Computed example of a mutant assay.
Amino acid sequence: MQRLFQGEDEEQQDYLLEDAEVLCSLSPLQRVYAFAACLLAGLVCMFLSLIVFANPIKFALLFTFGNLMAIGSTAFLIGSTQQLRMMFDPVRVYATAIYIGCVIVALVCALLIHSKILTLIAIICEICALFWYSLSYIPFARRMVSDLTVRLFDTEI
């Protein structure tokens, strides 16, 4: 009897997946438009967050929501499953973990602690982690930035 229900569950899951594919099937041009719209909305939220910086709760919510929208916009181009798989590649797993940690810390600092300074520090760390994560998609970009920082800030003459 359990196998009968299990077979029905598998058929229902297959049907739901097919239905989701039909609903989410976008043309390449529509995907680019959705990517651009989501990225633009994320950037607008991040910009608006700077206007309400005096209120750390609004700032953290707008900035983090905008940041997540900007990162999520790439799911329109490559798909959400591929996006998650790429985020947790060995090359990006540390940057992803630090980014997610900074997002959580920024929200905790803003919503629970109500500290503007700690929120600002967490947001700066979040931006740096996002920058480092983004560099992982450009071949040799991380190495070039690392070499550049060693050259600029190295005290040996």
Rank of each mutant, 00 (worst) to 15 (best):
residue 49 S to N: 06
residue 49 S to A: 14
residue 50 L to D: 14
residue 52 V to Y: 13
residue 53 F to P: 07
residue 53 F to L: 05
residue 54 A to Q: 14
residue 54 A to V: 10
residue 55 N to Y: 07
residue 56 P to E: 09
residue 57 I to D: 08
residue 57 I to R: 08
residue 57 I to S: 10
residue 58 K to G: 15
residue 58 K to H: 14
residue 58 K to A: 14
residue 60 A to S: 15
residue 60 A to P: 05
residue 61 L to T: 13
residue 62 L to C: 12
residue 62 L to H: 10
residue 62 L to M: 15
residue 62 L to A: 12
residue 64 T to M: 09
residue 65 F to H: 07
residue 66 G to A: 07
residue 67 N to C: 14
residue 67 N to I: 00
residue 68 L to I: 13
residue 71 I to R: 05
residue 71 I to V: 12
residue 71 I to P: 02
residue 74 T to Q: 04
residue 74 T to S: 10
residue 75 A to Q: 07
residue 75 A to F: 03
residue 75 A to R: 12
residue 76 F to Q: 02
residue 77 L to G: 00
residue 77 L to M: 07
residue 77 L to T: 05
residue 78 I to K: 03
residue 78 I to C: 05
residue 78 I to D: 04
residue 78 I to Q: 08
residue 78 I to T: 06
residue 80 S to L: 14
residue 80 S to T: 09
residue 80 S to K: 10
residue 80 S to V: 13
residue 81 T to A: 06
residue 81 T to S: 05
residue 81 T to H: 12
residue 81 T to N: 05
residue 84 L to E: 01
residue 85 R to K: 10
residue 85 R to L: 05
residue 85 R to S: 11
residue 86 M to W: 01
residue 87 M to S: 04
residue 87 M to K: 00
residue 88 F to Y: 10
residue 88 F to I: 05
residue 89 D to L: 10
residue 89 D to Q: 11
residue 89 D to T: 11
residue 90 P to K: 14
residue 91 V to R: 13
residue 92 R to E: 04
residue 94 Y to E: 10
residue 94 Y to A: 13
residue 95 A to C: 06
residue 96 T to I: 07
residue 96 T to K: 15
residue 97 A to Y: 02
residue 97 A to P: 05
residue 98 I to Q: 06
residue 99 Y to W: 15
residue 99 Y to D: 04
residue 101 G to I: 06
residue 102 C to Q: 12
residue 103 V to T: 14
residue 103 V to F: 13
residue 104 I to Q: 08
residue 104 I to H: 09
residue 104 I to P: 00
residue 104 I to D: 13
residue 105 V to C: 08
residue 106 A to F: 11
residue 106 A to I: 04
residue 107 L to K: 06
residue 107 L to T: 07
residue 107 L to M: 14
residue 110 A to G: 15
residue 111 L to H: 06
residue 111 L to F: 03
residue 111 L to M: 12
residue 112 L to I: 12
residue 112 L to E: 11
residue 115 S to P: 02
residue 115 S to F: 05
residue 115 S to C: 08
residue 115 S to V: 04
residue 117 I to W: 12
residue 117 I to K: 12
residue 117 I to R: 11
residue 118 L to I: 01
residue 118 L to G: 07
residue 120 L to H: 01
residue 120 L to D: 02
residue 120 L to N: 00
residue 120 L to R: 00
residue 121 I to C: 02
residue 121 I to P: 00
residue 121 I to L: 10
residue 122 A to R: 01
residue 122 A to W: 04
residue 123 I to V: 15
residue 123 I to S: 04
residue 123 I to C: 10
residue 123 I to H: 03
residue 123 I to P: 02
residue 124 I to V: 10
residue 124 I to S: 05
residue 124 I to R: 03
residue 126 E to I: 00
residue 126 E to P: 04
residue 127 I to W: 05
residue 128 C to L: 13
residue 128 C to R: 02
residue 129 A to N: 03
residue 129 A to W: 14
residue 129 A to P: 00
residue 130 L to S: 03
residue 130 L to Y: 09
residue 130 L to C: 00
residue 130 L to T: 01
residue 130 L to F: 08
residue 131 F to L: 09
residue 131 F to S: 09
residue 132 W to S: 01
residue 132 W to L: 03
residue 132 W to V: 11
residue 133 Y to V: 02
residue 133 Y to Q: 08
residue 133 Y to C: 03
residue 133 Y to F: 14
residue 133 Y to M: 11
residue 134 S to G: 11
residue 135 L to S: 06
residue 135 L to M: 11
residue 136 S to K: 01
